[in-house]
């Protein structure tokens, strides 16, 4: 699965305003509402579901990256977005480091395979330190979009 298969480019944020875990999750979910990927009436329910998942264990998987996510019946395909915090946010990460790169995913309850393939793509690309560094240095959403497109082109499609 490629980034372009699930990342809503209109929802990409190159500099989040929020400074807390829930704040970032809400800001990113709102960006999916603003781009029409999620209906606005579901915003609170989705934020709550993502926070509930975080309670089971942080999705801050290390290297300054977090993948907050949930299943939700209001979406009929996997939707996601990317955001960057230049200051970093305390996400109770597995390695204790602040998080700068966020990949938020909302998937239909009956499609666990798509979720796994999105995680596979994200983790495979993020093992590349150069990719992480360049993403963190992005100044505008178009920079992030370019990097994701480049990764889609270079990476093998699975």
């Amino acid at each position: 699965m490629k980034f372009s298969d699930f990342v809503s480019v209109e929802s990409i944020r190159s500099s989040v305003h929020a400074t807390t875990k829930e704040g970032v999750i809400r800001e990113m979910t709102q960006s999916l509402v603003d781009s029409g990927k999620i209906i606005s009436g579901e915003l609170d329910g989705i934020v709550k579901a993502i926070m509930k998942r975080e309670d089971l264990g942080s999705t801050g998987i290390g290297r300054g990256v977090a993948v907050p996510h949930t299943k939700h019946p209001s979406v009929d395909r996997l939707v996601g977005t990317v955001a960057i915090s230049h200051d970093g946010v305390d996400f109770e990460s597995l390695d204790g480091e602040p998080v700068h790169l966020f990949f938020l995913l909302v998937s239909p309850p009956d499609r666990p395979g798509d979720h796994l393939r999105a995680l596979e793509n994200i983790s495979r690309q993020l093992r590349d330190d150069g990719f992480c560094k360049r993403l963190k240095a992005a100044k505008v959403p178009a920079d992030i979009q370019d990097l994701l497109e480049e990764a889609d082109k270079n990476g093998f499609v699975s």
């Binding site: 998987i61 290390g62 666990p112 796994l116 393939r117 995680l119 596979e120 994200i122 983790s123």
Partner: peptide, 12 residues
């Protein structure tokens, strides 16, 4: 490594 293990995308 969690990043490594996630790249397996191992389904049921």
């Amino acid at each position: 490594s969690i990043l490594d293990v996630l790249t397996l995308a191992a389904e049921q």
